[in-house]
Design a protein around this nucleic acid. Structure first.
Lengths: 161, 161
DNA sequence: TTATTTTAGGATATTTTAATCCGTTTATTA
DNA sequence: TAATAAACGGATTAAAATATCCTAAAATAA
């Protein structure tokens, strides 16, 4: 997870960059109720600390994380990762409307849009929403475990916990 | 179709703004092989002429439009609208990858990503692609006709042809 | 109480995307 | 041939998204 570089643009993502960072941070949150430092997490993700901190604050406002100030502080999940859905995270970061529906800019509410793609588009939107709603943070953590933690030169040889 | 205003951000769209403008311009292209002026089209869409012109040039490079310079010139479709798919337009404007697949940033090619959402995500991506590939410009034109042309004060009372 | 460590959050800077500008080229018309 | 009207396309500007900075507030520990 590197910063965007000149000549190396962001991947074309369905969601904004902070949303992806939020997911990647949440996946690495401890499941045992202990607090984790924003700075620590930012180093692991190779993101600037204050930037990630802002994202974590947003998640805290959305009741996905809770924070504690001071020397023993940091962030932790408000619930078990099984009970946090990707949909919840995306809504917290992007707002309730993940993307505009009508390709032609027709009003979507009130039956304003009758494009021939409308039915298929609704299926797509529903599938996206239900996919996000069915997948929990825990599911992503399992996937992350298979990939191992990101490269960290200091621990690349042996790291007994 | 108005310019983005301060305090009135773009709708959160699956695609970039120029892609939506391209679709809206293409929908309004004549089907009889006559050329239409970029300036004329831009006025109807309430977009700046030179900006839309650049978008039309991109479509011309992609062999969706063809252009003619000079007093009788303009742009026209290279084919009947039945034979132009939305997928083709989106690829012309956005490149071959409409969005990055893995929410966690895992490599997608070479079997790098094994998230639990991967199968559902693939379904989503396939559905998007096939939906775009199955819908022709002609289909959108039919939908547009039902909405009527965009508001134009000069013609709001009666406009014989 | 004082020093230290952490999050909080507003202000600022940078990068990318979107939009504009302007001189050039090509075709038509007089 | 000269004047005009259109697309062409590089350079520039503006806006939005992304990233950074800095001071305040809160919790802990000496």
């Amino acid at each position: 997870m590197n910063h965007p570089q000149p000549g190396c643009p962001h991947p074309r993502s369905l969601f904004h960059a902070p949303t992806r960072y939020a997911l990647q941070a949440l996946v690495r949150m401890p499941g045992d109720g202990t607090y984790r430092l924003a700075r620590n997490l930012a180093a692991e993700l190779d993101l600037p600390g204050p930037f990630l901190a802002k994202i974590l604050q947003t998640l805290a406002h959305a009741d996905i994380l809770e924070s504690l100030r001071g020397p023993t502080g940091g962030f932790r999940l408000t619930r078990a990762p099984e009970r946090i859905t990707l949909r919840e995270v995306v809504v917290a970061m992007e707002g309730p409307e993940p993307f505009e529906d009508c390709l032609l800019g027709h009003a979507v509410g009130g039956g304003g849009c009758h494009c021939p793609i409308r039915p298929a588009w609704d299926v797509l939107q529903t599938l996206l929403t239900t996919t996000l709603a069915r997948t929990s943070l825990r599911d992503l953590q399992v996937a992350q475990a298979h990939h191992g933690p990101p490269e960290d030169p200091d621990r690349s040889v042996a790291a007994p916990v």
